[in-house]
Amino acid sequence: MRKHLLEVADLDRADATLVLDTTAQIEQALAGREVKKLPTLRGRTVVNLFFEDSTRTRISFELAAKRLSADVINFSAKGSSVSKGESLKDTALTLEAMGADGIVVRHSASGAPHRLAQWVQGSVVNAGDGTHEHPTQALLDAYTIRQRLGRLDGVRVAVVGDVLHSRVARSNVGLLTTLGAEVTLVAPPTLLPVGVETWPVTVSYDLDAVLPKADVVMMLRVQAERMNASFFPSAREYSRRYGLDGRRMAVLPDDAIVMHPGPMNRGMEIAAEVADSPRSTIVAQVGNGVSVRMAVLYLLLGGAPE
């Protein structure tokens, strides 16, 4: 394992498998016990540095660090010196001076975690940067697929929706192909990034043609906050062509699963009856997120400091 987890390219197949196996062992070790706490990172400090709003990712990292007995400091841009104009570098150096062993960072600027990693001694974990990457989300998605289907090699994954703005999609494409899955992106042409033809994926504009051959359907959130140009004519039209409803779910293979990184727009990209169906892994994904982040923090911070 490298020192930081900035993007899924930091993980080769062996590393990624180690993270998933470690996750499984941690889940097994904690299953059914009253004291869901391990002493592994006692005396280590983890800073959650969140420059962008987040509920589940921040809470998930916080819980993961606390379950490993690390001390956790939560820092959000609102109500901090950042609102007084402090730069990322000065914020980082301040936290560094306080002795952070690990920094979990979310930032609206793509590449912010990379810059941060050059300024601090501790390990940096990217918890989502701009439209770039969200590696722990991809790890928890891969873990969830392996848990439900028993394998990743040769699994056919359809990633549906706003690929253009989605760091979840970018990280999943990289990690899932590293682990041997076959990824198909399904989106209107306006929501696909430039250069997508160089990605190791198949691209389709037609959801109905892809669904019968998909083992996993990963729905992406329509990011209203990033819809500043007319990427599609109307929400209703998007929903009709790229939304997953009960009728579409019915054509999926028998053991196929439906995933969503949350937060969901029910009735937009995913119908309520799909989100609440037994095929849906959305709640399992949240639970697995804590275990995956425990595995990442253990592997990055558990060993000897440099």
Partner: peptide, 21 residues
């Protein structure tokens, strides 16, 4: 599995976990 309870992780580095059943 005692890996996550070891007091020498910092000396010897992290290692893969094994079964707890």
């Amino acid at each position: 599995d005692i890996t996550l309870y070891r007091d020498d992780l910092r000396l010897r580095g992290v290692r893969a976990l094994e079964d707890t059943r």
